[in-house]
């Protein structure tokens, strides 16, 4: 259902879109609730990222397959129902795999159902795209989200506890930065990452075309 005149992106582009150009955490700044709340440690961040990726891929695939059957008027309700199904699956899966992780993530597993990345992908992409491409796109988005969560979770765990994935890095005398595992730490680290990426982005066009210095699609 491509708009005439618009270039149809290749499969590779679909996959890479979520990793860098439209990264859900660092570019679109979507789904901040789990990003800030769960990224206290790298393990939590990774599990949350994988769980979200699973729901993202499953629900966009189903939405894409059913895209010609779902009536327009009730599409949001249908998407939510589909997403909720996959969230229920992932909820029980995590409970079965590791109860510790399940307790650490708490309500945020169930809250994946209202994660705007997933609903956004279903509405903006899966409902108008064939299954293979939409799954590739969802995989990229999920990977981008996981990378974003890991970026936050690693910094917060290293500074806040002196560990990474539970492995002690600096010996027993490490002074934990208590603030990093508290909510303000999430905002500080997210802000620092956004600052870094925006700085890199503004530097690139300046270096490439110093005369214009114009950034497209801001």
């Amino acid at each position: 259902m491509a708009i005439p005149g618009q270039k149809i992106p290749s499969n590779i582009d679909e996959l890479l879109e979520g990793l860098w150009k439209q990264n859900p955490v660092f570019v679109m700044v979507l789904g901040m609730c789990p990003v800030l709340a769960v990224s206290v440690s790298a393990v939590n961040a990774l599990s949350m990222g994988l769980a979200t990726t699973f729901v993202l891929v499953g629900s966009t695939l189903l939405v894409s397959l059913l895209r010609n059957v779902i009536p327009r008027e009730v599409r949001i309700a249908t998407y939510i129902l589909i997403i909720a199904t996959f969230v229920t699956v992932v909820d029980y899966l995590i409970q079965a795999i590791s109860l510790a992780v399940y307790d650490a993530l708490g309500a945020f597993i169930q809250l994946i159902v209202v994660n705007c990345i997933i609903l956004g992908r279903a509405e903006a992409h899966a409902s108008k795209t064939p299954p293979l491409r939409t799954v590739l796109n969802a995989l990229g988005m999920g990977a981008g989200f996981t990378i974003g969560l890991l970026a936050l979770g690693s910094v917060r765990e290293i500074l806040g506890a002196g560990k990474l994935f539970g492995v002690t890095l600096f010996g027993p005398d490490f002074q934990p930065w208590v603030v990093m595992v508290l909510p303000p730490g999430g905002f500080f680290v997210l802000g620092a990452w956004l600052l870094l990426f925006n700085w890199l982005k503004t530097r690139k066009p300046q270096a490439a075309q110093p005369a214009e210095g114009h950034v497209h699609g801001a």
Partner: peptide, 10 residues
């Protein structure tokens, strides 16, 4: 305020 939150003991 930052070090108060980060290094409360020191």
């Amino acid at each position: 305020a930052f070090v108060q939150a980060a290094f409360a003991v020191s």
